[in-house]
Design a protein around this nucleic acid. Structure first.
Length: 491
RNA sequence: CGGGGUAUAGCACAGUCCGGUUAGUGUACCUGCUUUGGGAGCAGGGGGUCGCAGGUUCGAAUCCUGCUACCCCGACCA
């Protein structure tokens, strides 16, 4: 465990990389671009999964599992889709190894070449729609509301822990509907689920909106996104929900007989969030002392650190610590009592700060005498002494406070870094000198969007839902525009 | 994939230019004693095919060739 963490203002990117590793969330593996998610990091992901999974089920979805491999021929059926993903696919070509001639190693057996190559899924629309074809004959078979928790592979050129890895974990929902209206409603429902999750569990404010045609998912007619602002002023796309129209139904010939007995193509959606959310969580709240976790996603919300001299005190402090632990557990609070005698209290304080545990309770001889505990909150680093009596209630309230406080802090940060530009010079000034979200008029063409990206590195993050309409002129071309859209530099 | 850089103990680095005792420092690790309310102190100890494969040489971490991986900056993306 290193003692020093790079400061955010010195090198934000390095701060992030160090933090992920030092807080024991993940590390680079022996495999290029692939990470090992360590137990502490995985515990946070499991909390995210549990909350999201419940939200999916509450909105009528069920879980299923589809194959890791997709036959190459499936993959090419939807033209836009294959074009979007072709450049980053891992491909399985053989199914057997053999010993090399010199007996010292192994090699791919050339006789074991597959008839048809298999793509390691970068996303599962094609294999799922090929499957749905068999599940759907009648309007009575619809809707199908499936989700799967899975790993996918996208052969990215440059990777970063959680933010962009060659293999990542995610969930992908794939739904099939009888009508366009129903599919659109599903798409909107799921982006709302994502934004609720981001704001209520991750304590991370997000802006919901439509992607532009240029930024849309390969094969979608409309892509909704939630966009979060990180502490370095860059945006992070944190979840997407796609209205796929009838594209995949047509590509895989999925038709159903409606009530009138007429054959129609099925309407589709897909939606997903990934372990990238872990990166978002780290960057949204953490500080120069380490991770700051929202209580709702922290692997343990409270850590109790005993302070003692000698075996006699150790026994007493341990007894008192266990009692407090049980009281907290009865209040539904998750607690770790770190009674290891192999590390000193000061070491533990620093350790749990680095790991972002929302509340630390210190308990020593002084406290045993006075019937108190010292409670430190991670978000503000404030320390206060409270009576041991009713401590669970105090902690419970503090946890709620912390959850709320870090949300408000992130929201304030976003407010302070959201600008509205009325001309090109303002636009560039905000992007270069302030950083953050910049609203600006855009003429609606992909050509202009790309030109702006080329000049400023900023992209249109989204056209926010319920965006107020106002007449104006495109900041680049001066052509008429009906609304300002959200620009930012992004991850 | 284009440009730049790095590879020596678990980690972070020095040594490489100018080849030559037993490859060193910090940290981490192990043992003992003293410590314990913010990453303890002292003493002792273990750990290295110097990224991989070749080559030059009496002798290579050091020079040459090839390869691989990683990092930073671009293009691409959840």
């Amino acid at each position: 465990m290193g003692k020093f963490l790079t400061k955010r203002e010195d090198n934000y990117s390095q701060w992030y990389n160090e933090l992920v590793i030092k807080a024991d969330l993940a590390e680079n593996s022996a495999v290029r671009g692939c990470m090992v998610i360590k137990p502490y990091g995985y515990a946070i992901w499991e909390k995210m999964q549990a909350a999201l999974d419940q939200m999916f089920k509450d909105t009528g979805h069920v879980n299923a599992y589809f194959p890791l491999f997709i036959p190459k021929s499936f993959f090419s059926k939807e033209a836009a889709h294959v074009e979007g993903f072709a450049k980053e696919c891992a491909v399985v070509t053989h199914y057997r190894l053999r010993n090399t001639a010199d007996g010292k190693g192994i090699e791919v057996d050339p006789d074991a070449k597959l008839e048809e190559e298999l793509i390691v899924r970068p996303t599962s629309e094609t294999i799922i729609w090929n499957t749905y074809k068999n599940w759907i004959q009648s309007y009575r078979d619809l809707p199908i509301l499936c989700n799967q928790w899975a790993n996918v592979v996208r052969w990215e050129m440059r990777t970063r822990l959680f933010l962009r890895t060659a293999e990542f974990l995610w969930q992908e929902g794939h739904t099939a509907h009888a009508t366009e209206e129903e599919a659109v409603a599903e798409t909107v429902q799921m982006i709302n689920v994502y934004s609720d999750f981001a704001e209520n569990f991750m304590a991370m404010p997000v802006i919901k909106g439509h992607k532009t045609a240029n930024e849309r998912f390969a094969g979608a007619l409309d892509t909704y996104t939630i966009e979060a602002l990180m502490q370095d002023g860059k945006a992070l796309q944190s979840g997407t929900s796609h209205f796929l129209g009838q594209n995949f139904a047509k590509a895989f010939d999925v038709q159903f007989a409606n009530k009138e007995g007429k054959l129609q193509h099925v309407w589709a959606t897909s939606w997903g969030v990934s372990t990238r959310l872990m990166g978002a969580l780290v960057m949204a709240h953490s500080d120069d002392n380490g991770l700051v976790l929202p209580p709702k996603l922290a692997p343990y919300q409270v850590v109790i650190v005993p302070i003692y001299k000698g075996d006699e005190q150790y026994a007493k402090v341990k007894e008192a610590g266990n009692k407090i632990k049980e009281e907290l557990k009865d209040f539904g609070i998750t607690v770790k009592f770190d009674d290891r005698d192999t590390h000193k209290p000061g070491w533990k304080f620093a350790e749990y700060e680095l790991k972002g545990v929302p509340i630390r309770i210190a308990l020593g001889a002084r406290d045993l005498e006075n019937g108190t505990v010292e409670v430190a909150r991670r978000d503000t680093l404030e320390k206060n002494t409270y009576p041991q009596e009713n401590i669970a209630k105090v902690v419970k309230n503090l946890l709620n406070d912390i959850q709320e406080n870090i949300y408000n802090k992130a929201l304030n940060y976003r407010k302070e870094h959201t600008f509205s530009a009325n001309n090109w010079d303002e636009f560039v000034d905000y992007l270069d000198n302030k950083g953050g979200f910049v609203y600006a008029h855009w003429d609606g063409t992909t050509e202009t969007e790309l030109a702006i990206k080329d000049k400023t590195k900023a992209t249109i993050r989204c056209i926010p839902i319920d965006n107020p309409l106002e007449d104006g002129k495109c900041i680049l071309t001066g052509k008429p525009s009906t609304q300002k859209v959200l620009f930012a530099k992004s991850y």
